[in-house]
Amino acid sequence: MTHHTVEDVFAKLQKIFPDIKESEEKIKNYPTWSVSSGSLFKICETLKKESGFEYLDMVTAVDRHGKVNSAGYLTEPNPCVYSQNPSVVPSQSPAPGAGFFEIIIILTSFSMNQKLILVSRVDRTNPEAESLYPLFKSADWQEREVFDLFGIKFTGHPNLKKILTPDFIKGHPLRKDYVHKKDKFDY
């Protein structure tokens, strides 16, 4: 069964998954729905099988830890290093455990000529989400990238290992609280 507008799809999904709602902050010019991380996989499955959203565009994440004070970057000799600079007032940087991760998923339906964005919150202390690999193979490398750069574990992914950063890099560089440990390439 196909739907004609994205609103129909939303109304139908809301009956099955009551926790789905329109996101407060729209990602500009696309319908943006916020879903719970528990039902993300099921919602994608329903969208794929019943509404023709058969193409996964993008999987990425945002670290909503809060803006890190950029003074910490700029005064260091290596601009990529975020370190505990004494001149940075600690109250300007977010508290260690603050915030959450957002997983951003863009789906496309060719029959409806429509793109759709799903936003899902993941806990920041032990980040885990269900892998979309069984539904879309294109999640394979993109989820590995998110795992590498943010440290979000995707359960059910068959080959979840680092992809972009080298083996000796410890930690997840796109996290806001990432502290670069000096290695042989720093001087």
């Binding site: 993008m58 990425t60 945002v62 803006k67 490398w141």
Partner: peptide
């Protein structure tokens, strides 16, 4: 993603070759 600052809070690049090569 902007948080109202001079620099982006997050900028993700959806790179076609990265996805194609998989």
């Amino acid at each position: 993603v902007s948080e109202g600052e001079f620099s982006p809070y997050r900028m993700h690049i959806k790179a076609p070759t990265f996805i194609n090569t998989a």
